[in-house]
């Protein structure tokens, strides 16, 4: 019954009007794995989670979650998963305790056991002191932690976390990841998490899928993905026209993938610190003055740029655009 994989997406597709939010994606998540979905806002992360958790029906394709088909056996899927959606979903008019007990009731957990679990979970997410306060009095971090407790009340084998750390301060983010990690270690819970925080994906995920514009561009362990970038990334700034510099650099052996990204010249080289003097030399002979240089070991950001051709940070920076995109999607849903 368990099958080999916790999640298996087969040509999973979602279309909102003219927008292809998720475009025929295929991937597998093994049991006990922390699997990260990394991509900018509007890339299709949340839509994927909504389909996998049976909130939204796929337009095409399907997925097996816990061995059950999300289209044909949604009730079975719902019983075996826990979900922490991106938006707050607790009832503000009720207390934290009442929220937990309500969700427990919806999973058909007997009262006595529900009380035990609720006590335990509130302790885990450090909310015992606020259990009898109305949720509307909670801070953002407290609400997020309550959401996680609510997602765990049915002891799910597979837990879905949609941007669990969005908008939280660094300390709370670290705390939430430590809860997630504890779940994995102690209960062997499979965790599917979406994030746009590169460091988080790098640090906590066993494997990562990079998604952009509804397509999966790469899947692998953070280490494997970084290896693909190959060597160091060098970023140069030059006085004058960068085009000239690019032409010169393209003729140097060992340099690859030379291009201009947002006014900076970016290229890859196996050992950046050794190559730097040579590069200075060649450029100055060609009459190009280097104004700044940065040599970086590949980070997830480099990985992301490698596959998508743009930086995730910049994408995130243009919040306006992301919000506009969301509005479009929402309108299309109506």
């Amino acid at each position: 019954m368990l099958g080999d994989s916790a999640i298996k997406a087969i040509n999973l597709t979602k279309r909102y009007g003219p927008i292809l939010a998720v475009d025929h994606i295929n991937f597998e998540v093994k049991y006990g794995e922390v699997f990260g979905f990394l991509g900018p806002n509007g890339a299709g992360k949340t839509t994927t989670i909504k389909m996998l958790t049976t909130v939204t029906r796929p337009t095409e394709g399907t997925a097996l979650v816990g061995g059950y088909d999300i289209v044909k056996q949604p009730a079975k899927v719902r019983e075996s998963i826990g979900v922490v959606p991106q938006d707050f979903t607790s009832d503000e008019d009720l207390t934290g305790w009442e929220n937990l007990m309500m969700i427990a009731g919806l999973y058909g957990i007997p009262k006595r056991e529900a009380k035990e679990r609720a006590t335990e979970l509130l302790d885990l997410v450090e909310l015992s002191h606020a259990a009898d306060r109305k949720v509307e009095t909670y801070s953002g971090g407290m609400r997020r932690r309550l959401e996680i407790a609510m997602g765990l009340i049915n002891r799910p084998r597979i837990l879905f976390l949609d941007e669990p750390t969005l908008g939280l301060d660094a300390q709370t983010r670290a705390a939430i990841w430590s809860y997630v990690f504890r779940l994995k270690e102690q209960l062997g819970t499979t965790i599917f998490v979406t994030t746009h925080y590169l460091e988080e994906a790098d640090q906590y995920c066993d494997r990562i899928a990079i998604i952009d514009h509804g397509k999966i561009l790469a899947i692998g362990t953070p280490r494997d993905l970084k290896k693909v970038v190959g060597g160091d990334v060098v970023i140069l700034q030059v006085a004058g026209n960068p085009e000239t510099a690019v032409k010169v650099l393209q003729n140097i052996d060992g340099l690859s993938d030379v291009r201009i990204v947002e006014g900076f010249i970016r290229f890859k080289v196996s050992d950046g610190s050794r190559a730097a003097p040579l590069i200075f030399d060649v450029l100055s002979k060609a009459g190009v003055r280097v104004t700044s240089i940065a040599i970086k070991e590949p980070s997830m950001d480099e990985v992301f740029m490698e596959y998508t051709g743009h930086s995730l940070r910049d994408e995130w920076g243009s919040r306006e655009e992301a919000m506009a995109m969301r509005r479009i999607v929402r309108t299309a849903r109506r």
Binding site: R78, I81, F88
Partner: peptide
């Protein structure tokens, strides 16, 4: 609007 429905829909109710 408040997201509660999203949560309810993921439960087996």
């Amino acid at each position: 609007r408040l997201g509660v429905l999203d949560k309810l829909l993921t439960t087996p109710v």
